[in-house]
Design a protein around this nucleic acid. Sequence first.
DNA 1: CGGGTAGCCTACTTGCCGGTAACTTACGAT
DNA 2: ATCGTAAGTTACCGGCAAGTAGGCTACCCG
Lengths: 212, 212
Amino acid sequence: MTKKQRLTGPQRRAQLLEVGRELFASRGYEATSIEEVAAQAGVSKPIVYEHFGAKEGLYAAIVEREMDGLVQRMSDAIAQGSARERFEGAVVAFLSYAKEEPAGFAVLTRDSPTSSARRGLTRVIDDLAQRVGDIFQAEFSRAGFNPKVAPVYANALVGMVTQVGVWWAAEGRPLSLEHVAKHVVALGWMGLRHLPSEPAVQGPRPKGRHKG
Amino acid sequence: MTKKQRLTGPQRRAQLLEVGRELFASRGYEATSIEEVAAQAGVSKPIVYEHFGAKEGLYAAIVEREMDGLVQRMSDAIAQGSARERFEGAVVAFLSYAKEEPAGFAVLTRDSPTSSARRGLTRVIDDLAQRVGDIFQAEFSRAGFNPKVAPVYANALVGMVTQVGVWWAAEGRPLSLEHVAKHVVALGWMGLRHLPSEPAVQGPRPKGRHKG
DNA sequence: CGGGTAGCCTACTTGCCGGTAACTTACGAT
DNA sequence: ATCGTAAGTTACCGGCAAGTAGGCTACCCG
């Protein structure tokens, strides 16, 4: 068998990130023990602590890395083209990530450890929705729609793609990526193109609203 | 002060379900201890075990009850009316549930305990998507679309509504239910009415049907 | 009043897991 | 070769939470 190999710091760190990702993906945060991570890496517990300080440190490092990867893909995808092309690009990028990085996708999709709640929105997907929401907000204002409903669409689209991604991955990807993307894009795009006008469009007369 | 009141079995059981739901909703499964549940109910640990056997038993009972409640609302909502009305009804029913049963909604939205995976799809929402998918499947076949893509739409719609619900609840429901529902329905309905035809359609069915 | 039973409690055991202290070993540079 | 350092180890602590054994008490019913 492979000799008990000594790795350099960065190498070991990278390996632990890899192993941790796989474990967190399959078992979830709570059900994964540091000992397990260490064992799977052929190393002992304190090594993990040496690199990441605490369990949450390891988890945070993994999530951050995956988040960066996903955001990178999405950013590239919406860098240019018509609005429709960018939308389609975003969907394809998201599904590609789900396909090519199943473990990372699983980690991002699962619940976070309870303590790391920031600002009340705990799940990572919510973060993504927030970013999309910011983009939409500007876009909506520009187009004369009520920007307050932008988050509704942002969350709707993110949730749509996410859930489809989860199903698609869990089901062993029964359809091709292009196939799935096509339908999702169609569903989302049509809705966006037919935004209903509403009483509360920002016209000259802001109407008195009832309860929130 | 309230006397150390002795409750009957069913009463205590109901109370524990209530307390447990609240706790699981706010802390999540792992972070909630049976002792906490017992304390909050003004009772000691073994009582909980007497009623539910194990922690998972309590959790399962709570989830099942909430799931039933949600399904009940949805079923009522889609019992009659045009397709569009039923769709709208389903969305409204879902959001109403999120609004009126925030704790239950939180429980259903969170991750389940790792061990209770059934059929590979662990999350409760996936169950819902499955049911919707079955309905769509039949509907798609009838309308001449490829039924294999039905789950895509089912998951997309369920994910859409779910994520919007999560956001809406987490944000303290900044918009009215009707307002949110209107936009979500618009987004979903438009997409459904313009299903893209595709190479793999079964049968000579060229064009999307019209209906009022 | 006197039992029986249903509801409830105290007081454990057990095992796991996050985290740490203190020691050991490989290895390259001088 | 040897010394310094980075890499890795064993062996422990402390705490918490799941689950249980066995005893107590209120209340109903005759």
